[in-house]
Amino acid sequence: MSVVFEKTKGLTEKEFHYCPGCTHGIIHRLVAEVLEEMDLLGDAIGVAPVGCAVLAYDYFNCDMHEAAHGRAPAVATGVKRALPEKTVFAYQGDGDLASIGTAEIVHAAHRGENITVIFVNNAIYGMTGGQMAPTTMIGQRTTTSPFGRNAEQTGAPIRIAEMLATIEGASFIERTSVHNPVHIRKAKKAIRTAFECQQNRKGFSMVEVLSTCPTNWGMSPLASLGWVAENMIPYYPLGNFRNPDKEA
């Protein structure tokens, strides 16, 4: 008998707590697979955020450090400075990274901190019950934008990948999505390149992953995937925004 599918060693036996149709699970798996394939699990220290992925430390099969809301890049900086030979990554959502933690992410990039950040953008605060995020789409209704997000009042959705790409210290910046198998493969490739960047001491790397929130969007899992493609991707274009190899 041959093994056709095996769960990655990068994840623990613990069952994910994520809602049906939430793509956090896929993104966890991609990161875990990349770490396993690059033989980095014994060397990796992950930093978990505050947000739906707050329990990420239970799932990744490597040393994990839980951070305060938004501070994952600062915590990862502390870990990386203490252990420069190890592989350090932060896993953050959009409330964490694009709102309360903008200073930390911008300055980690600005210092060229040699860490990898996985940024999960689902245009909403999931954990706290579906409030507006800086990444919420115009017109999108959330518990704190009950009439739909209005740019005049709350600005237009923030494009983090583009913003960080303007920073000199940022080495690899790419936006991906996991709404279908083709894009899942591309996302994995980007995550791998980001970790390679860190291994080659190229500095800060970040992969933004467009993700779903069926529960707080109020949609079926399938409709949520469609919503990413139809509403998010046109505003958040996929692709690479910074790559050390292309610039050389």
């Binding site: 220290i45 600062a74 915590v75 900086t77 502390g78 870990v79 990386k80 203490a82 252990l83």
Partner: peptide, 11 residues
Amino acid sequence: NMVYGAAGAGA
């Protein structure tokens, strides 16, 4: 928070 990270890493 950097202190938190480095302390967690045993420094």
